[in-house]
């Protein structure tokens, strides 16, 4: 474990140096992040212009949820999004060979080799919106609330990682030209709003099959002090299970990998 942490720190350093080459991009990226969160808040405002609750959540609650959504998306864009399309490239060009020969777990390497630092701005902005929402709600989270929040957002991240990894692993059999990240984006977009909003079979799917609604709702509810030990424990268990499953799937897929280059 300690070894992997050291390797991750090394990736971090290498990518940071790389990123410093493009300093002039920083300002425009900063602007677009601010713009993005501003628009998201405005959208919520438009909805609440016509109502005072959405799926049982008040305006301030939805702001906290939006903050969680932005934080989680920032984390995904920071660590996962730069890597997933590259996996397709590796498989298609046969450059996965180089990774397989390295003495590290290949799934770890392909998942975290490339990091996009400026996306951490979105994480900060997301935390800012969470703070703003909590102030609007006049709720000061206790230490326990925050702990529950950290646990549940962590397990959400692991769950997203595992699901996306499994989606990408299918490319060992079906080699596509375009990456499938937009399928993931559509799925994640449903996590922007309270899950109580969805009804009938859609709600069942988004809670149990593709738990998009749960991954943002639970951390938000934790921070608002409405956590539940059992559901949090279950979510950690599920995330662990899917992580294990995706790793097994990856190993299984590697068996059918026949290097593309000669």
């Amino acid at each position: 474990m300690g070894r992997y942490w050291r390797i991750f720190r090394e990736f971090f350093r290498a990518c940071f140096v790389e990123e410093l080459e493009y300093r002039s991009e920083f300002l425009s990226n900063l602007l677009s992040s601010f713009f993005g969160i501003g628009i998201a808040i405005l959208t919520v405002k438009i909805f609440f212009y016509q109502t005072d609750q959405l799926g049982g959540w008040t305006y301030a609650d939805v702001l906290v949820l939006l903050g969680v959504f932005n934080t989680l998306r920032g984390l995904i864009d920071f660590a996962l999004r730069p890597n997933m399309p590259r996996l397709l490239e590796h498989i298609r060009k046969g450059t996965l060979d180089y990774i397989l020969t390295k003495p590290v777990d290949s799934m770890f390497y392909v998942s975290f080799r490339h990091l996009m630092f400026w996306r951490l701005i979105d994480v900060l902005l997301g935390l800012g919106v969470i703070g703003y929402g909590l102030v609007q709600q006049h709720y000061m989270p206790s230490l326990l609330d925050v702990a529950m929040f950290v646990i549940s957002i962590g397990s959400s991240f692991v769950l997203i990682y595992a699901l996306w990894m499994m989606l990408m692993t299918t490319s060992f059999w079906v080699i596509r030209i375009d990456d499938l990240s937009f399928i993931f984006d559509s799925f994640f977009e449903t996590a922007r709003f309270p899950s109580g909003m969805y009804r009938g079979w859609l709600r069942i799917i988004l809670t149990y099959v593709l738990p998009a609604a749960v991954i943002t709702n639970m951390p938000a509810l934790s921070l608002l002090g409405r956590w539940n030990v059992v559901t949090t424990a279950v979510s950690v268990g599920i995330a662990g299970f899917f992580l294990w499953l995706s790793h097994r799937f990856w190993r299984f897929a590697l068996r059918s990998y026949t290097s593309a280059s000669s």
């Binding site: 909805f47 016509q50 109502t51 959405l54 799926g55 030209i177 375009d178 937009f182 399928i183 984006d185 559509s186 977009e189 449903t190 922007r192 709003f193 909003m197 969805y198 859609l202």
Partner: peptide, 25 residues
């Protein structure tokens, strides 16, 4: 094929917005 797959991607956001409005009204 790529075009049709892309088309499905453009459908999700309007559908979610629709669900939001159906909840409000």
């Amino acid at each position: 094929l790529a075009t049709i797959v892309w088309m499905t991607g453009a459908v999700v956001q309007p559908l979610i917005t629709m669900i939001v409005w159906m909840n409000i009204r």
